[in-house]
C-alpha cells in the first residue's frame, strides 16, 4: 500500500497527444481533449438522433429532444424577439455543447483509469473561442445593422450631458469585458468544481491509506462532503450552460435592438 499519494488536482487538466507523439503546437494533433470533444459531439448527435422519429405523439426521448430545442429556441425568441430565430442555432450550439461537455466531465468513467473524463470546458482555449464567437456575432450584427450608430450602445438613454465623459468609458469597458467574463465564468466554475472534487477524493484515499482512526473519520466525512459537492456540480453544469447561452442571447439582443 502506498504510504502517501501525492495530491495533484491539476493533473486532470493536462492535455496529452494520444498517438504517442509529443505536443508540438500543430493544429491536427489528436489529444485527449480532442477525443473528449468528439465524445461530446457523439453523445449530442446520438441524443438528437433519438429525437428525430418525428412522430405526432412523441415518446420520452423525442419529447426530451423537443424540450431541449424548444428551450433554446424559446431563450433566443424571448431575449431577442422575432429576429431571434436567426440566432437560435448558435444559442442551441452553445448551450448544448457546454451542457454536454460539463456533464461529460462529471461522468464517473474514471473508475477505469484510462477512461478518466476530460472536461473540455475547463480549458480557456475552449471557453475563450466560444466567447469570442458570441462576441463576434454581437459586433458583426451590431455594425451590420446599425453602422456607426452602434456606438450609441455606450450612451444609455436619458444620460445628462455632463455625465457622458464618465458614463461612456464605463459602458465601453463593461462592453469590452463581456467576452472575458463570458469565457472566464465558465472556465473558473468548471476548474474550481473539479479541483474541489479531486482534492477531497485524495483526502478519502489518503485517509484510508493512513490506516488510523482519524484517517478513516476524515475519509468518511470527505466522502459525505464529496457526494454533496458532486450533486452541486451537476447543478452548476446546467446553470453555467444556461448562463452562457442566456448572456449570449442578451448580448445579441443589444446588438439587434441597441438600447
Amino acid at each position: 500500500m502506498a504510504a502517501e499519494t501525492k495530491i495533484d488536482p491539476m493533473h486532470q487538466f493536462q492535455i496529452g497527444a494520444l498517438n504517442g507523439g509529443a505536443l508540438d503546437g500543430a493544429p491536427f494533433v489528436f489529444t485527449n481533449s480532442a477525443l473528449w470533444m468528439l465524445i461530446v459531439l457523439g453523445s449530442i448527435l446520438l441524443f438528437m438522433w433519438g429525437g428525430m422519429k418525428r412522430e405526432m405523439i412523441p415518446g420520452r426521448w423525442q419529447a426530451a429532444v423537443e424540450g431541449l430545442v424548444g428551450f433554446t429556441s424559446g431563450m433566443a425568441l424571448t431575449s431577442i424577439g422575432p429576429e431571434g430565430r436567426k440566432y437560435a442555432p448558435w444559442i442551441f450550439t452553445v448551450f448544448t455543447f457546454i451542457l454536454f461537455a460539463n456533464l461529460m466531465g462529471m461522468m464517473p468513467f474514471g473508475v477505469v483509469d484510462a477512461a478518466h473524463p476530460f472536461t473540455v470546458t475547463s480549458q480557456f482555449t475552449v471557453t475563450g473561442v466560444l466567447a469570442i464567437i458570441s462576441f463576434s456575432i454581437v459586433l458583426i450584427v451590431g455594425f451590420w445593422k446599425h453602422g456607426f450608430h452602434f456606438f450609441s450602445l455606450f450612451v444609455p438613454h436619458g444620460t445628462p450631458a455632463p455625465m457622458l465623459p464618465l458614463i461612456v468609458p464605463i459602458e465601453l469597458i463593461s462592453f469590452l469585458v463581456r467576452p472575458f467574463s463570458l469565457a472566464l465564468r465558465l472556465f473558473v466554475a468548471m476548474i474550481a468544481g473539479h479541483i474541489l472534487v479531486d482534492v477531497f477524493g485524495y483526502f478519502i484515499i489518503n485517509g484510508i491509506n493512513s490506516g488510523t482512526a482519524m484517517g478513516y473519520a476524515i475519509s468518511a466525512i470527505s466522502f459525505v462532503f464529496i457526494a454533496g459537492v458532486n450533486a452541486l456540480e451537476l447543478l452548476v453544469c446546467a446553470i453555467q450552460a444556461y448562463v452562457f447561452a442566456l448572456l449570449t442571447s442578451l448580448y445579441i439582443n443589444d446588438a439587434v435592438h441597441l438600447h
Binding site: 492535455i15 505536443l23 503546437g25 500543430a26 493544429p27 491536427f28 494533433v29 489528436f30 489529444t31 481533449s33 480532442a34 470533444m37 468528439l38 461530446v40 459531439l41 450550439t93 455543447f97 473540455v120 480549458q123 482555449t125 475552449v126 473561442v129 466560444l130 464567437i133
Partner: peptide, 13 residues
C-alpha cells in the same frame, strides 16, 4: 495546444 484545441473545437462546433 491552442492550435489543436481550436481546430477540434471549431470542427465540433
Amino acid at each position: 495546444v491552442y492550435q489543436s484545441q481550436w481546430f477540434w473545437l471549431l470542427l465540433v462546433l
